[in-house]
Design a binder for these strands. Structure first.
Lengths: 326, 326
DNA sequence: CATCATCGCTGACAAAAGTCAATGTGCCTG
DNA sequence: CAGGCACATTGACTTTTGTCAGCGATGATG
């Protein structure tokens, strides 16, 4: 096979171009053929593996993991909080990372939706101070009547205070005692308007709640442990802004959700930058549900969670990046 | 800002561009920064070794002359740097070839011995970046006290840095003023241990020094020009890792060698892949000595040197492969 | 021996990447 | 807190690279 002689010139072109950094026209001149041919040779050299271009894997393993997670799930950006031996407690580190990422995602004049939960509260707690006048922080879900350690309005208010932004609270309970009352309240102009503006947000911040007995919905009395358990049997997988979602991330048509004063899930999905922060590894199934439901464009998780998500995605053949070329 | 936010965005840009094959403007759009910045990030990614572009060095080994040289001398592999009209300056080309070959010879977890000299220094200077964690680069010979342009520790350190490997320097002078002191120093546990590990290397990189007046040993003051000349009369033919060898490549029992802190020649010979790079054509006799002494399993030379070696080998009837080929 | 198909190569043009001065932006210092 | 410094970022421009129709050589076929 006379392929050999062909290969030789391809090798040579690749060597001069990639290793020596000559330009294509210089290579062409030296090899005394047209530059167009050089361009073709170089493409073949790449295709044939005579030259290989690799992005370092071990050195930036967390970055690579993040990129893979983005590719698989279609996230805009993923941040991986490492779990090295020498690193700090990852769960403790995450709110810090989240806060700084959050800050960078804010643009002048943005409207920002903030939900509620332990994670969000911790993020608020370590949020740096900034001067973001013109930014508005709105509360994504209603308040808890009873005194509770992490109150939705506290999250909103604290973040707004730190950013020197305007905070707008939702003056309604998270859960009402009847569907009728919830409907009527939702119809109130002041409430309705506020809920209607949520889809205008450019950025949202929330975590996903679990459906275990230690869920906030149970702890704050919105649901009993038995009710929550029953919901789990009916397919509930997580909680977004106080509302139960099923394994596919869809709103569940249940009594609790109908009684819940919170942002319409469609409105939340309409927000361009949806920042989801998951600290606890046992929220894995809830995270999966939230991802499937499209509740995250920007995700912050631990490395092990990221790996589990990737694993699950590949097992279910959900990888959106079947087309990615090489 | 998040830790390593800079690296993060560079890595992401590199990932999208090189792994996904997006165009720069597409990457820019996705990351919401200007394309000019992307171009800059990508350059940095290449410089920092986040992406590595390697070309196979097959080009230089795929040569009739190289095969003949291997057959004659018993080398494992020879690489011939051509001296064509169209080729670049062969002397300038050689370090590049050497670096590329060197990289291909490294395996995960290897321990690599590196000696010192102008050639090795130049190789280090053009060594591509790579991600070879777990690889250890050890210094084969002691350091030069006086400030000198090519310092042994620099060679080791620079190569280790480029490979992202661990570099281990030998903290001892190359030449001591008395044999007694040299002996005592060699007996020091820290030194002794380090010298003892040299035979555990899987790969060594060095050149062979000449015994002319422009030899490094003379230039750095270890030997006077007269002394060197006298050693030549006594049969010295070259320098390996700072030590004089005779025309058969054997260690010379001389004052200089006894005062020299360097790897035992037997240890060097024990290394499986001994990569010898000879740039200067006037080192011919030294090269012959090194080959006879078994200091090369992998050789990189110019075509004319290769021919001269073949010529000498056939004249002396040393051809190890009298039965084999045509 | 004409014809056709194939393939590598090239010129010319379109697309993409590189470059650089000007501009922002934060950050430190006096 | 102004001023200045260092450096990241960008828009506009230049250079380099990718592409593809068309050309010519080669070789197989009727």
């Amino acid at each position: 096979m006379p392929i050999r002689s062909n290969d030789q010139i391809i090798h040579k072109a690749a060597w001069l171009y990639y290793t020596h950094g000559l330009r294509q026209d210089e290579v062409a001149q030296r090899l005394e053929i047209s530059r167009a041919s050089i361009a073709m040779y170089l493409r073949r050299a790449r295709e044939m593996g005579i030259v290989t271009i690799t992005t370092s894997s071990e050195l930036f393993s967390d970055d690579v993991l993040a990129r893979e997670l983005e590719d698989a799930t279609g996230l805009t950006t993923a941040w991986i909080v490492p779990e090295d031996r020498q690193a700090m407690d990852p769960a403790a580190e995450m709110p810090v990372v989240a806060a700084s990422v959050f800050l960078e995602l804010i643009n002048k004049g943005d409207r920002i939706g903030v939900a509620w939960g332990r994670t969000v509260y911790h993020i608020a707690d370590v949020m740096p101070f900034a001067d973001l006048r013109g930014v508005t922080v709105v509360q994504l879900c209603g308040n808890l009547g009873a005194p509770y350690s992490y109150r939705p309005d506290q999250c909103t208010t604290e973040i707004a205070r730190r950013l020197n932004a305007e905070g707008i609270n939702l003056y309604a309970p998270l859960v009402l005692s009847s569907e009728r009352l919830a409907d009527e309240l939702r119809a109130e102009p002041v409430i309705r308007e506020q809920l209607a503006t949520i889809s205008d947000c450019q950025l949202a911040l929330y975590s996903v709640g679990g459906i275990e007995e230690d869920s906030h919905l149970v702890k704050c009395g919105a649901l009993s442990a038995e009710e929550m358990h029953a919901m789990g049997d009916k397919g509930a997988a997580g909680v977004i802004a106080g509302q139960l979602i099923d394994r596919d991330g869809q709103w569940m048509d249940c009594a609790h959700n109908r009684r819940c004063m919170s942002a319409d899930l469609a409105s939340i999905r309409a927000i361009r930058k949806r920042m989801l922060v998951v600290q606890e590894d046992n929220k894995f199934e809830s995270l999966i549900a939230a991802l499937k439901g499209g509740f995250a464009s920007h995700l912050i998780v631990t490395a092990s969670m990221a790996r589990r998500v990737l694993d699950r995605w590949s097992k279910e053949g959900l990888d959106k990046n079947s087309s990615g070329k090489t």
